[in-house]
Design a protein around this nucleic acid. Structure first.
Lengths: 327, 327
DNA sequence: TTGAAAGCGCTAACAC
DNA sequence: GTGTTAGCGCTTTCAA
């Protein structure tokens, strides 16, 4: 390659990395030769020579989920644009239970940073992440002393309850989640607490039966809603902890012959790709954007890029036909 | 590290890779030292020394989709179990349009194999994949001269139509897909052709208006079904080209006040995670398993693993409450 | 069964 | 602005 362009290896290296101190004409000649020969420098060799890779590990509970998949996509796209790559560490197993992070998969690739998505990692796993003192950023999760990207969970829940209350609802149930396998349990807990707090603050009616646990899954949410909405003194509105939970609530309403929104209003959080088709009122969060921001924060931590990371897009209530004043 | 175990680098290398000709006692001592020091060999250095990485590129149109995400998860898990890693190449962009595969991202990592998922790649992209003469396997796509994993599309569609016909339906509509961005257009075309063929073969009624294009998306499918089911001489059953299409059809039925299955039967293909909650009859395919099998085929092509790749799980009709005899 | 030595394809420091 | 040199951390002969 160096011979083909009639220069030394070092000059090729400089030209291809667009370092200064290369004559424009030389650079052009080298680029042309590289294109002609189909030459692309080896990441492995570069990593060995520099002592650092351009890899960022992205640890996810699973990739089969709108939320996690979108975060991954945002992280990946942003890293790639900056000349880095995502090394996917997917902890999902065939049986749905998450496996533990292993030392080998984390260390052998020598990632220079880590993005941890939607997780509860145990102490040993956190220690593994920290051992190389590479920067870490979380998305939808919290690790002590580590920057985290995410939405204000309490505020999102509050917005839904306030919206329903503003429509005139005084009996607002919640189909939430105590915990979901692999997922950060704080999310469900925060949304539930915010619901309870808002109900109290707004002086709304409250019944223990107006909470049901749906584990962020459609079937469990449907079942929880069947119980809640099948009872005599049912709520007139349901705040679902996520859009997927809300889809379960809609199924329950349908099964019970309740019209939405005439008999019961339903609202969620996410703005899932199916939400618009279901006419579901929801508070939009953008996981892709959260992934992008996480990658930017991480890149800043690596000294790449300048300026502040763009602020989060504000949470937005997307009003659709699933909510209306009570009959 | 070598010093810590009191042996040479070469012996450490042999021991950690479990090569023959290492005394058991020596191997144990080395393993212990590695564990104590937290030593994991560098992939980059190993790749440079051997001339080959242990990376397989996985090219996907997007990762935010049950199907693609599941395939990726299957590929990743299988590769990891064999000591290889997936290098994700996600061609999705923020605007939803897929970007082209670039030479740089494909070459710099020096993958030793490629898995291409659900794609239509143009000639230049295919040439890029082939240039290093690394083995290639596709999933849910076809590339000339390359082994491909996937379900028999025609058979899956046929099974749905036959099921509906067996229930007594003679007016079976189809909400299908002409093409979806980034996706292999052959899938929608094959399912549609199989529907038309089965309708003809079984001597069922046929109307041009009983086909609608839903692009495998829930809203477009809903709209197509609204037109089809809103007409006076509507079909008594709808074969949706995928479960997501079927969810759209269910929404349309609901909007039109049609009961499922009393007024109209609905069936899809996939067994999407939401299908059971919707009581949707469907033909199950397992994208995760397809991913696993693709990885196994690829590993065989690399000379790793022995024996034949397990046969595909047969397509299975999952009968649920969304289909019943016509009224 | 183990060690010594060369070299994989780059980058970095230094000279020119 | 460009070339020379050494060396990154492994693996792989080849000898011992």
């Amino acid at each position: 390659m160096a011979r083909a362009a009639g220069v030394s290896e070092a000059t090729v290296s400089r030209a291809l990395r667009r370092l200064p101190h290369v004559a424009p004409a030389t650079a052009q000649r080298i680029e042309a030769a590289a294109a002609a020969l189909g030459f692309t420098p080896s990441d492995s060799a570069a990593a060995l020579a520099t002592g650092r890779t351009r890899l960022v590990s992205v640890v996810v509970p699973s990739v089969v989920s709108w939320f996690y998949g979108s975060v991954l996509e945002g992280v990946d796209a942003t890293l790639r644009a900056a000349g880095f790559s995502a090394a996917l560490i997917d902890l999902a197993q065939a049986d749905g239970v998450r496996r533990r992070l292993t030392a080998r998969e984390l260390r052998s690739a020598r990632p220079i940073g880590h993005v941890v998505v939607g997780f509860e990692l145990d102490a040993a796993e956190q220690a593994l992440l920290r051992e190389a003192s590479a920067p870490i950023v979380t998305v939808g999760a919290r690790i002590e002393g580590v920057p985290g990207i995410g939405i204000p969970e309490e505020r999102a829940a509050e917005m839904v309850v306030e919206h329903l209350a503003a429509l005139g609802h005084r009996r607002i149930g919640h189909v939430g989640a105590d915990r979901e396998e692999g997922m950060n349990p704080a999310v469900g807990a925060a949304r539930r607490a915010a619901w309870a707090a808002a109900v109290a603050r707004l002086g709304l009616e409250s019944r223990p039966e107006w909470f049901g646990s749906g584990a962020f899954r459609i079937e469990a949410s449907r079942d929880a809603a069947l119980a809640m909405l099948g009872a005599a003194d049912r709520p007139t509105a349901v705040f679902a902890a996520s859009d997927i939970s809300a889809f379960g609530v809609l199924l329950a309403a349908q099964a019970l012959g309740l019209r939405v929104p005439e008999d019961v209003s339903v609202a969620g959080i996410d703005d899932h790709p199916f939400a618009a088709a279901h006419d579901l009122t929801t508070v939009r969060q953008s996981p892709r954007e959260q992934g992008e921001r996480a990658a930017l924060v991480l890149l800043r931590g690596l000294g790449v890029g300048r300026g502040a990371v763009p602020a989060a897009t504000p949470l937005e209530l997307v009003q659709r036909a699933s909510t209306a004043p009570p009959a």
